[in-house]
Amino acid sequence: MKPQDILPDQQNDVQVNGLTVRKGSVGAFLASVRDWQDPAGDPAARASAEADLRALLPGLHALGLFQVLAARDPALQRLIDGGR
């Protein structure tokens, strides 16, 4: 299956279990994880990244992402598990 089979180029979001999940949500999650896990990062940037992660979690759970993937970082996995 190709990405365009799931979400055509001209479509920017999908409805899953009553939630709107935007194109780019997985990429935004990964970028936010990197910022959140950066021990040298500014505390305000890390807090902002955590807020972004929490906002993305419901949609990613609805997509079923965490039914097939688990985080290596226990703190991230706790965050994921708490975002159901």
Rank of each mutant, 00 (worst) to 15 (best):
Q4H: 11
Q4G: 09
Q4F: 14
Q4V: 12
D5Q: 10
I6T: 11
I6R: 10
I6D: 03
L7A: 03
L7H: 02
P8K: 06
D9R: 05
Q10L: 02
Q11F: 13
Q11I: 15
N12M: 14
N12K: 13
N12I: 14
D13F: 12
D13T: 09
Q15V: 13
V16I: 13
G18A: 07
G18C: 11
L19A: 08
T20L: 14
T20G: 04
V21G: 01
V21W: 01
V21A: 03
K23H: 06
K23T: 05
G24V: 10
G24C: 08
V26C: 01
V26A: 04
G27V: 00
G27S: 03
A28S: 08
L30H: 01
A31G: 03
S32K: 00
V33M: 05
V33W: 01
V33Q: 02
R34A: 12
D35Y: 01
D35L: 07
Q37V: 09
Q37C: 09
Q37F: 02
D38W: 03
P39T: 14
P39H: 11
A40I: 01
A40C: 07
G41K: 04
D42E: 11
P43K: 06
P43Q: 06
P43T: 07
A44M: 07
A45G: 03
A47Q: 15
A47R: 14
S48E: 11
S48C: 07
S48P: 00
A49S: 06
A49N: 04
A51K: 13
D52I: 02
D52Q: 12
R54A: 09
A55S: 13
L57K: 00
L57F: 06
L57E: 00
P58Q: 06
G59Q: 04
L60D: 09
H61T: 10
H61M: 12
A62G: 11
A62S: 12
A62K: 04
L65C: 06
F66C: 09
F66R: 07
F66N: 05
F66P: 03
F66Y: 12
Q67R: 14
Q67L: 15
V68K: 12
V68W: 13
L69I: 14
L69N: 10
A70T: 14
A70P: 01
R72E: 15
R72N: 12
R72W: 02
A75M: 15
A75D: 15
L76K: 04
Q77H: 09
R78F: 06
L79P: 01
I80W: 02
I80T: 02
D81C: 02
D81F: 00
G83I: 04
R84I: 11
R84E: 12
R84W: 12
